[in-house]
Amino acid sequence: MSHLTDLPTWAAIVVCGLVLLGSAIALIGSLGLLRLPDFYTRLHAPTLATSGGVILICTASIVCFAVLQSRWVFHEVLIIVFVIMTTPVTLMLLGQAALYRDRVEERRGVPLKQKPLPEPADE
């Protein structure tokens, strides 16, 4: 990390811009968790950090180390791929749990569970 001063000015500006923008998006996402009124709307806030935030910060990392070591650096792409692939699992779990709770408590404004169709005979 001590070599960061070797970064040329243009690259430093690009990296700074990307990191600042990415962390601003992540911060706004966390603010959303605080400010949004109910559970389902709060579900949307952290996805800001997992999409925009992660992509911008990883891009900054790619640019930074590619310029510093003057070769192509791509393994940060894996971070983006794995984060995007795994977040739906958590979000679906949380969403389904909330839906289940609200249906049991018969809260208003929550879509009711549709009556399940009969099982197909071959299953």
Binding site: Y40, I84, P88, G95, L99
Partner: peptide, 26 residues
């Protein structure tokens, strides 16, 4: 599709009914 809808903030996948083939999202 679930990955795409979660990656785009503003839509959240909630429940997919396999038999009805209907998706509930927020």
């Amino acid at each position: 599709l679930a990955c795409i809808m979660t990656a785009t903030p503003g839509t959240a996948w909630l429940e997919y009914d396999r038999r009805r083939k209907s998706l509930l999202f927020h």
